[in-house]
Amino acid sequence: MSRIQNAFDNKKAFIAFLTAGDPDYETSLNNFRAVIEAGADLIEVGIPFSDPIAEGPVIQEADIRALSSGMTTDKVFQLVKDLRKDYSIPIVFMTYANPVYHYGADEFFKNASEAGADGIIIPDCPFEERGEFEGSAAKYGMDFISMIAPTSEDRIKTIASQAKGFIYVVSSLGVTGVRSEITTDLDSIIKLIKEATDTPAAIGFGISTPAQAAEMSKKADGVIVGSAMVRIVAENGKDAPAKLAEYVKSMTKGL
């Protein structure tokens, strides 16, 4: 069983996403440290991509800031290595198919695993195409994490039954970003997932307030927060670590 399971043991998991290298390597490393120390259960490390088609404007801009600061896939691996000196928290990458594919899937997962990552989320690699990466990921002990969307319907059981690590339940149509309300019938989706697997399910896309986090954590095994955290990074520059810590504490309180 992978380290990812630790995030869900006897608690609701708070999963925190930040783009690696946003706005620069050092600040980004400090941001991740602050988030971990403040009580996140699992962190998603975004490997920036030039054209992130599943992201809303907040994370798109973070990717641009990170790439402009000279962030590369190899530097993201270094960042995880730096974190691993102090923390055993589960870490998953979140990036797009091309940075992994072009790096060479086997080489990518070998280096990712050596750096200390536990899994990967690739939003533009659906179930049908997972063969592109899943084998290499498994070879190096990394979980290829599946997503389930409000439109998945008859696909839910098949995807859930083969899921590894955790299941990323996409709360809403569209791209990542803060939403004032989430209207999808998530209870029905989670029910189908639970019928098919024991793999934990976490809800992401649109969650930003403690109230939303509390509500979503009643439905699922964890909540994923990205854009709201990235916005704190964008607005606070070098002062972001303290603000992020404060935010994570407010979010985890109600879980």
Partner: peptide, 10 residues
């Protein structure tokens, strides 16, 4: 191939 988000697959 079909490298697109799950939301679009159905």
């Amino acid at each position: 191939g079909q490298y697109i988000p799950e939301t679009l697959m159905n």
